[in-house]
Design a protein around this nucleic acid. Structure first.
Length: 375
RNA sequence: CACAUAAAAUUACG
């Protein structure tokens, strides 16, 4: 049992979720009875895959075998249902767990915040304390994230302060959650301030912190701050990371330095869709339509499939450099060749292209005939 | 240390 469980958990922890699932069913066929630890491990694989079907199958197995009830399995089930989009099932399981621990509570609260149900999350947060369960750093971070994603940054800050009053030291994750909240809500200055405070508090920024503050620099066009963070990334070996690299490309482009953006982009060993989109959007910002289109061809050549954001970049680039024909062409191929249905932003880009090229009547016609409700 | 929970990059015009 231990060998199987070790293998299954190892797979699940390292992103080999399908292998974990396969191994679990093989284990059953081999006649080995899984322990609750095995179940918890394989449930994690379902959660990562967002595979509700598999998750339910394993839940059913647990019920059939009347496994000794483990809070680990219970929490893993709550988490699985919550992350696979079924809060109601998560709550059903949650209510039936006799000995809830802090992980159980955290899992259900996260389920609610994931769906934007912050008011319900707040209720549960109060409820757990009424039941004598003390929130841990995870709980506080979940609440901070949930509030910030809901636009309630001030409340998120209050939670951040309150956790310290309650004697819980904010982890780097609590800090990053709050910083992300400010960055996303257009308060780049606050985000940068907190980033500095975090370091004064003794937390060393990691990859995620870097990826979180760079957009704050970008939104402020704070090139000097961005460069410092770039330097920090190099010193700490983050520069080869695809997420940090993409964030740097974006930051430099938005700070007005397309040159540095290209330099970082060219040096990156691994590029993904976001990397390409960042560079294409960078060219768009700089009014280099031809450059954006040329990058588009490169990315397709490299086997990266463009998405709707790629086309937003291309169309915006066309609008900023007066490329009306190309604009039409990409607007057409995005659905015809790539199966991407244009959204409101794409339509807005087309109106912008037509308008800037002086085709106001055509722009007006275009709005009147578009299949979406113009905003 | 065979087990479950928290943070991250790209998205029009202005």
């Amino acid at each position: 049992v231990i060998s199987w469980t070790t293998m299954i958990s190892g797979y699940a922890q390292n992103g080999y979720d399908n292998e974990a699932l396969k191994l679990f069913w093989e284990m059953l066929q081999a006649g080995v009875k899984p322990s609750s630890n095995t179940i918890a491990g394989v449930l994690r694989a379902c959660t990562d895959l967002k595979d509700l079907q598999q998750g339910k199958a394993i839940h059913a197995y647990v019920l059939r075998r009347v496994l000794e009830s483990s809070v680990f399995v219970g929490s893993a089930l709550v988490d699985m249902y919550a992350k696979c989009g079924s809060v109601s099932d998560a709550l059903l399981v949650f209510d039936q767990i006799p000995q809830k621990n802090v992980v159980t509570w955290n899992s259900i609260i996260r389920g609610y915040t994931l769906r934007g149900l912050v008011a319900d999350a707040l209720k549960l947060f109060a409820q757990m304390q009424l039941k004598g369960m003390k929130p841990d750093a995870f709980t506080w971070s979940i609440m901070i994230t949930g509030l910030a994603e809901n636009g309630q940054v001030e409340e998120a800050l209050e939670f951040f302060s309150q956790m310290q009053v309650e004697g819980i030291k904010p982890s780097i994750i609590s800090w990053t959650a709050l910083i992300a909240g400010y960055a996303r809500n257009g308060q780049g200055n606050e985000a940068l301030k907190l980033f500095n405070q975090m370091q004064l508090a003794g937390e060393k920024p990691n990859l995620v912190s870097i990826a979180t503050v760079l957009p704050a620099c970008a939104s402020l066009a704070a090139l000097e701050q961005g460069k410092q963070i770039h330097g920090y990334s190099i010193r700490n070996g983050f520069q080869s990371d695809v997420v940090a690299g993409s964030a740097l490309v974006d930051m430099y482009a938005k700070c007005g330095s397309i040159k540095y953006a290209c330099q970082v982009f060219d040096k990156m060993l691994e590029k993904n869709l976001v990397t390409w989109n960042s560079m294409i959007t960078g060219y768009a910002i700089h009014g280099n339509g031809k450059g954006a289109i040329s990058l588009f061809h490169d990315m397709v050549q490299e086997g990266i499939k463009p998405d709707s954001i790629t086309f937003t970049g291309i169309l915006s680039a066309c609008s900023h450099s007066g490329l009306m024909d190309e604009g039409w062409q990409y607007f057409d191929i995005m659905s015809q060749e790539y199966g991407i249905t244009p959204n409101l932003t794409h339509y807005a880009c087309m109106v912008d292209i037509l308008g800037r090229c002086g085709y106001l009547d055509e722009a007006w016609d275009f709005i009147e005939n578009m299949p979406l409700e113009p905003n």
